[in-house]
Design a protein around this nucleic acid. Structure first.
Lengths: 274, 274
DNA sequence: TATAGCTGTATCGCTGAGTGATACGCAAGG
DNA sequence: CCTTGCGTATCACTCAGCGATACAGCTATA
């Protein structure tokens, strides 16, 4: 399920060493704060409850330090013991923070009603994602009538280099910046169709630059066709993206674009203006 | 908008002092970890970007400590400067953690398709919320066709004592436990109809104990009618709740219950079994 | 144009908070 | 039986975090 999850991980193992280096020359850097977040981030790499030792290993810390941090986070409600199984899982207090993050995000608030309108027009799945360097983070998802897959995907992230939304985002950047981002990406083939060659990707980006949207067929998931367009701020910089996705068996790329791209373009323009 | 938000706040001002007391006798308690989470929690109390001093005040810390923690969290992507305005806002890295919390929550995974089915049957809003002591935290929300209000409410929390879902949750607890929870709640009148008297609330709880569901009219929001039922684990303990809500102008409580309670009860039973 | 108050940033000596090695009781599995 | 992993608890050392202090830049009020 999380096969195509693309976490940014500055705080795990190799990342931990990097942070310690950064801390050496930075008198304002608090190691304990970083370690705390490393413990919380340990759960990125698992799909079941984690024991103390597992957390320690994933976070790159020793058992004692992990014990203390886990103990403290447990007191505060950010971690809890799994009621059924052994081990620890993220606690409910996390939900408060995502609520803050969404509430205080300037892009999201005005976008919601616009996305609902869009979904009304096109009866496929509609997603809004935010840009975080080389990845897109899903912030909002509206399932279609016939939902097959997972629907609660807030926080799921996908790569920029091989998604329709990503290509449209790249098309709104200067070329050298886009190429640099592609090079920094950890490119892998999720399907046989996944593009990983820089120039091949840039060809899609250029097409997106002309039409305003990009269409991707089975880049990330078999059977999926997606069309994406970037939301830009008043300076023309991409800040988010909207994706509409359906089944590749239902549409040719051309039909799909003809059917939904007008509504899509109208929506991203409206969000950018809001 | 956040008028009825009901944050649990163990780490702010008076809460901070409480934590320091706890830390004195607890050799495993890391002050720096708690302080880090206090800084992140500072955003619970605002609806706009916060300056360093504002964060410090909200978190109950001095400016220097806040500076260092904010600096560190910024390096890690948990805080960022607001691009338009001054000040800091939560960063995008938060999204990774909510994804973990949802992914690893045993209640949520099997519930999603069941909730989609439920929404198909009843054309009103459907919510799933998790229990956190005296409050219910929204984990999943499916908007109806005609959505009026805010739709992306993951992490929003509402009180247990004056909601339909809350009453149904209380009805699945021993009476003394339920009464204790009500007493510990910070009861306030959100509307003229809001029940705050312990015995009045317990009367609704008893009704819910008989029928299995509770109906609340304009308890939290004017014009809202809601029906809620608890999800219980195999031991009979309440672990979550499902709510269906509509407009009180469209339904009498009896009609509403007759129309949707069968589907609702079927859904919560199925989630509990999953 | 002072000036007062805010912002974010930077410096620095002191000390106790955090560290990490170590140990213990318990439960599961062989 | 022994082993291995779990969560928990203890303790002396020391350097990481502390918090007082200072400063440049920006806004707004006087």
């Amino acid at each position: 399920m999380t096969r195509f999850v693309n976490r940014s991980r500055p705080h795990t193992e190799s990342g931990a060493r990097h942070l310690d280096e950064a801390a050496e020359n930075d008198p304002l850097f608090i190691r304990a704060t970083a370690r705390t977040m490393m413990v919380l981030s340990a759960f990125h790499e698992t799909d079941r409850p984690m024991s103390l030792s597992e957390i320690a290993r994933a976070a790159g810390l020793d058992r004692s330090t992990t014990q203390r941090i886990v103990h403290t986070l447990r007191q505060l409600g950010y971690l809890q013991r799994d009621p059924h199984d052994r081990g620890y899982v993220p606690g409910i207090r996390i939900y408060d923070h995502i609520f803050d993050a969404m509430r205080l995000n300037r892009q999201l608030q005005p976008a919601v009603p616009l996305l609902l309108d869009l979904r009304r027009n096109v009866n496929e799945r509609v997603d809004l994602s935010l840009i975080d360097d080389t990845r897109l983070v899903y912030a909002f998802r509206l399932p279609p009538k016939r939902e097959v897959l997972h629907a609660m995907m807030v926080g799921l992230s996908v790569p920029i280099y091989c998604t329709s939304a990503g290509w449209s985002v790249l098309s709104r950047m200067p070329e050298d910046e886009a190429r640099d981002l592609i090079r920094r990406s950890d490119r892998q083939r999720y399907t046989a169709q996944t593009l990983i060659d820089e120039d091949a990707i840039m060809a899609e980006v250029e097409k997106a630059g002309e039409t305003g949207y990009a269409v991707a067929v089975e880049q990330l998931l078999p059977g999926e066709i997606a069309i994406g367009a970037a939301v830009t701020n008043t300076l023309g910089r991409p800040v988010a993206a909207v994706t509409i996705s359906g089944l590749s068996s239902d549409w040719t790329p051309e039909e799909f674009a003809r059917a939904v791209s007008p509504s899509l373009m109208q929506t991203v323009a409206a969000i950018g203006r809001a």
